[in-house]
Amino acid sequence: MSKLSNDATRLLEAISYQLIVTLEYCHDLVDGQTLWLEVFGDVTVSGSVQVEVKNFVDDLTDGHNNFWNTLKNWLSPKFKQEKYSELVLLTTQAYGATAELRHWNNLSGEERLKFLDKVISDSEARIATSGKRPSKAVKNQQFVMASERRCVLQDVIEKVKIISAEPDLKTRAENAKSRYGKGVDPLKRDEYFEALLGYLIEPCLSKSGWMISYQDFDLKLSRLLAQYGRNSRKFPTVDTDAFAGQVDLSVYADRLFVKKLYEIEYGQRVPEAILEHLVTVHTISSEFKRFTVEKSDVDNYKKDQLKRHKSLRSAEMRRCSRKPKDDWCFESQNFFDTRCGEPVDGMPAFDGTTPEFRNGIWHMLADDEDEEGNEKLHWRLW
Rank of each mutant, 00 (worst) to 15 (best):
T98I: 07
A125N: 09
G96A: 04
V119P: 04
I120F: 05
G109R: 12
G109K: 08
I120R: 11
E111I: 03
D117N: 14
S108N: 06
A97P: 00
H103G: 00
N105M: 08
E110Q: 13
R126I: 11
R126D: 14
E124Q: 13
E110Y: 02
L113Q: 07
N106Y: 05
F115T: 05
E111Y: 01
D122S: 14
T98P: 00
L116V: 09
T98W: 00
K114D: 12
H103R: 08
I120L: 15
R126G: 06
S108R: 06
L107M: 14
D117C: 12
E124V: 11
E124W: 00
E100N: 08
N105S: 09
F115C: 09
L113S: 10
R102W: 01
N105H: 02
K118T: 12
I120N: 10
Y95E: 04
L113P: 01
S108A: 07
G96L: 03
K118C: 09
E100M: 09
L113V: 10
T98K: 10
E110I: 14
E110N: 12
L116S: 04
S121Y: 06
E110K: 11
S108G: 05
A99H: 00
K118V: 12
R126V: 12
R112S: 09
E100K: 06
L107H: 02
K114L: 15
G96R: 00
R102K: 14
K114A: 15
S123H: 01
N106W: 04
E124F: 05
V119Q: 07
L116Q: 06
V119R: 02
R112H: 03
A97S: 10
E100F: 02
A97D: 06
L101E: 06
N105L: 09
I120D: 11
S123V: 08
R102L: 08
K118M: 11
E124A: 06
G109L: 06
R102N: 05
S123W: 02
A125V: 13
R102H: 02
W104Q: 07
G109S: 13
W104T: 04
R126P: 02
L116F: 05
F115R: 01
V119S: 04
L116R: 05
R112Q: 08
A99F: 00
A97W: 00
F115M: 14
S121V: 11
L113T: 08
W104E: 07
F115L: 14
V119Y: 02
A125M: 12
A125R: 09
E111N: 05
G109C: 12
